[in-house]
Design a protein around this nucleic acid. Sequence first.
DNA 1: GCATATTTGTCCGTATGTATA
DNA 2: CTATACATACGGACAAATATG
Lengths: 225, 225
Amino acid sequence: MAAGVEWAGLDRISTAERVAGILRDQIETGKLKPGTKLSEEEITTGLGISRNTLREAFRLLVHERLLEHRFNHGVTVRMVGLDDLRDLYQVRRVIECSAVRGVTELSDTARTRLHEAVLDAQDAAKEGRWADVGTANLRFHQAIVGMIGSPRIDEVMRRVWAELRLVWHVLDDPRTSFERYISVNSELLDLLLIGDFTRAEKVLKTYLTSAEKQFVAAYAEASHR
Amino acid sequence: MAAGVEWAGLDRISTAERVAGILRDQIETGKLKPGTKLSEEEITTGLGISRNTLREAFRLLVHERLLEHRFNHGVTVRMVGLDDLRDLYQVRRVIECSAVRGVTELSDTARTRLHEAVLDAQDAAKEGRWADVGTANLRFHQAIVGMIGSPRIDEVMRRVWAELRLVWHVLDDPRTSFERYISVNSELLDLLLIGDFTRAEKVLKTYLTSAEKQFVAAYAEASHR
DNA sequence: GCATATTTGTCCGTATGTATA
DNA sequence: CTATACATACGGACAAATATG
């Protein structure tokens, strides 16, 4: 390495992780669709890296459940099954409801994060930026989980949402599903602001259960097509 | 492959995972103590494997938070900090309490698993097998978490307990802490059997909070010695 | 502070076995 | 059966960072 900018030691990143980052991005933005086969040769020559390094990147993403490793069939972008989808919502119910239930007092940071997420979603909806509605909704629920204040739980949920994005990209009907988020989230925010945590938990749980049903139905139909 | 009984095709395991298993065992049984540096050369020659393979095993264990990786410094057995310890108990509170709270009816499998764990712990305690008391206690709480029925949550909790074992090995005072488990667990079992889930949740939460306090205090003292 | 040895990070080429077209 | 593509594992090379005398 010549007289480079020299990264300050700490945040140096391995090649494998950089490659994993590139692929992760392509998957999360939907450029690489579930089921797509990733050819070793194509990527190694395309990125100018060795097979060994690529395999390490693959391993990282398989651990994040973004890629699937079928035995001698190579690596493919993960296809989330119906069982997985149900489990993902089960995890959301357990964690998010627990977060709301455990609140004693809404912290300032939580309040602003929730508030901003709701406003952003409304703005985005007005202008028809449905993808932005989705990310704002994500931030809203991340803020809810963040109220627990547990790094480990935050990390688990990041993975859950990464998996759910795979589902959303298969559905590609952002509008109908994302519009519901807005009203539910602002209702939740109101309940949290007035301190009615019990009712907030109920609303959240009901919403998550019905969202699960909706997605399971839509996903089941989309899958066998 | 000829008519081999050997591995039945599907559950073939990679060398990296086998090596990871060996190291995991050494860590979980306390033979490799937190802070120990793992030399690549030593292990590759000791186990007769290549560096690449070992590094893959390292990667797996780093992912499980049993090993720590500092760039250009290699890997060491993870040292759990006080913040981590508190977070681990926070995760237990959220998940385990949610599991108890969410029960509508105790399933047969859950009942037998809980019952057996309590009996095993009592037997082991009578004979002074404190390590076995610990594993029986672990099985009890795994059974509680299992009531949720979520593979992802089960996996998360397996990791949580693996991290907690690192703490317990630093403390090495099994008796005083494990004796409490027995009475609390059998009380919990009774409450679950009579269907008083609300009270069971309270007992569990109280226990976990007090256990956290106890361990944090003991760990803080053990650390700066 | 300096020179040297050791360790780690990265990447490559290859060998063997297996599954698929 | 052959050719192809992939999985796995090994050993080696070389640069960069670190430890050591």
